[in-house]
Amino acid sequence: MRRRSLLIVIALVLVATSCRRANRPASAVAIARPTQYELRLGKEVYQSYCIGCHGDSGAGDGFNAFNLDPHPRDLSDPVFQKGKSNAELADAIRRGGAGVGLTSLMPPWGHTLDDRHIDAVVVYIRSMKR
């Protein structure tokens, strides 16, 4: 009897292992990169609303920058990028310069753009880091 059940167990294990598919999800801790979709949306929003002052590359050299004092922020500056969290960037965009204690020349966009647009712009800003 024992030999029989042993045989059956071995057979079952063999069957089980032979049809296991190598289809494992990535590790739980990995962070996904932004999707092409988010980048594209962010770029569109940036080019509509931000490019006039912050410029094409984010360097703060938009065509409207010359008359602004203080000068628009260089968004591509690695130091600046490192110093701000995504939430802080989104907050500054949402509430404007005056809202976060800076110049009121940066308007608040929270009533114009919804959260997904703001988040997408933040994603795009991150991609402009020099």
Binding site: L7, I8, V15, A16, N23, P25
Partner: peptide, 27 residues
């Protein structure tokens, strides 16, 4: 008979190991 058992066990075992189940456990 043994072959019968093994071959018939194939489909249920394969069924039990469908990838979505592993994914749901992973989730």
């Amino acid at each position: 008979s043994l072959a019968f058992l093994i071959v018939l066990a194939f489909s249920p075992v394969k069924n039990a190991l469908r990838p979505y189940r592993a994914l749901q456990r992973q989730f």
